[in-house]
Amino acid sequence: MSSAFCPVKRERLLRMAENIIETNGLTRNYGDICALKPLDLQIPEGEWLSVMGHSGSGKSTLMNLVGGLDRPSAGSLQVGGKDLLALNEDGLARFRREFVGIIFQQHHLVPYLTAVENVMMAQYFHSVPDEAEARHALERVGLGHRLKNRPGELSGGEQQRVCIARAIINSPKLLLGDEPTGNLDHKSTVMVMELLKELRAEERFTVVMVTHNQEVAGWGDRTIYLDDGVLVREERMR
């Protein structure tokens, strides 16, 4: 009996060890400027990776490439077993909505939609909107009382939490944060990071977070340091 379950178990173990992101000589040039020098990077599934560096060090470029928002100039890029270079524009869009959740530094909500509608928009692009589920997601991030407010009526921390709810609504495998706490005070930053940690424990997504805040980077499992498009240092937290 137990032997019948054995292959399943082994496969799960194998998958756990699998890398969700694998880059090989990943390069991005903007004209003559080389934003990302050839980079080899592996991120195992379930890891929380912090990317640190000065502004212009190529950390946002890396995040955009991994999130399917931008295309590399050279090299190979596999995310979740998909070769992103082989996807066309609509394919990348599909990849983004099904696989990735993105949180930006500026909150980037649609100004004329309420909090719940902003979450539903992500559902709509993914498949079909489901208001109950969107409401539940906002309750999970502690905004159950702010459902019908438009972004202008929310504080910075609240807006960022709406973005988190939107990012996780389609159960992504990969959550990308581009300095998600860059505009927040210390108290809100801690709140947001705690929230992300909680959600990750429940949903088991991989996190790649770009930041220049050492404290924020400390929430992750591993930190890589980029400088001028080159990986200069790597630090394992736990």
Partner: peptide, 16 residues
């Protein structure tokens, strides 16, 4: 255009 960019980032394809 920020709104459009946002929709695209969230995963809207050209048809949507």
């Amino acid at each position: 255009s920020p709104e459009i960019a946002l929709m695209k980032a969230v995963g809207a394809d050209r048809f949507q």
